[in-house]
Design a protein around this nucleic acid. Structure first.
Lengths: 143, 143
DNA sequence: AACATTATTGCAAAAACTTACAATAAGGTG
DNA sequence: CACCTTATTGTAAGTTTTTGCAATAATGTT
């Protein structure tokens, strides 16, 4: 019985079903220390659910993002990667070396409220990835 | 003589070359009223530069982003689209209908400075796309 | 204007991602 | 437990994006 079975009621109450494939994918994401690309997810989840195919991985990641069980974000190459939803944070990635830092959501909270007031939009809750140059790479350029 | 020739010195001083293909792509972006997908850029620029190929479009858009002549951003489907760089703004896109609103960069300026102070990162200048629900779609749900 | 250097392109193929649709199986009901 | 409904998957094929490398052409130099 996988640790992912705790998501069953969450799906059930929304009219969705738990499947071996979703179980495997959620399990992989829960135990990943970092963001994973769809291909990475596929490789790992296939071990648990051998019939799993790539289209299903793409669809499932998209679906799980939709219902907020996983959080998508863009890597420096502009490709989507995924991580399990949990502590709400954003990412700051070094343009040069790719090093990642987490950004507390609280830092963005007031900006989101401001955007909502200015634009009339609601429910702004996107995960955002910022790019900059990290301290280490700054020093290298100084030399 | 295309309007894009004014970019020649910008490229030249950085050690890059102006080509018919880059000219065509810059021209297309300058006259586009909105973001364009690589395919759209390809279709339009090909009229000006018949030998143009898709790989070149992808490479050129990436290159022009790199040197800040065009600004990339993500559409609601997560695909990259491009627009000519100019007035510095971000985008707020409706999750539901896709309507786009511009967000003044000044609203983000202080956040960027805050991020830099907290993280030690520098040169945070990413274009960001936010997603929310626009006023029109909010009303539809109320009914 | 011819030549040299090398940035840039086109080509061909691979890799990544998406879609349509028929087959499968999750979970509710009798 | 057998049956029904329909959410979900696999298959096969399409589209989009990326890559390696040889051919091309933009610019500086003579």
């Amino acid at each position: 019985m996988s640790c992912a079975s705790e998501y069953v009621p969450y799906l059930r109450t929304r009219g969705y079903r738990m499947t071996r494939q979703r179980m495997a994918i959620l399990h992989v994401l829960r135990h990943a220390e970092t963001h994973l690309s769809p291909l990475e997810v596929y490789k790992r989840a296939r071990l648990e659910a051998p019939s799993l195919t790539e289209p299903t991985v793409y669809r499932t990641l998209d679906f799980l993002s939709e219902i907020a069980l996983v959080r998508p974000s863009y890597n420096p190459n502009g490709h989507l990667t995924y991580e399990i939803a949990g502590n709400h944070h954003h990412h700051l990635v070094c343009k040069n070396c790719g090093t990642e830092t987490e950004v507390e959501h609280s830092l963005l909270e007031s900006l989101y409220r401001l955007l909502e007031m200015n634009s009339g939009y609601r429910s702004i809750n996107s995960h955002v990835t910022f790019f900059g140059v990290c301290p280490k790479c700054q020093n290298q350029k100084d030399q």
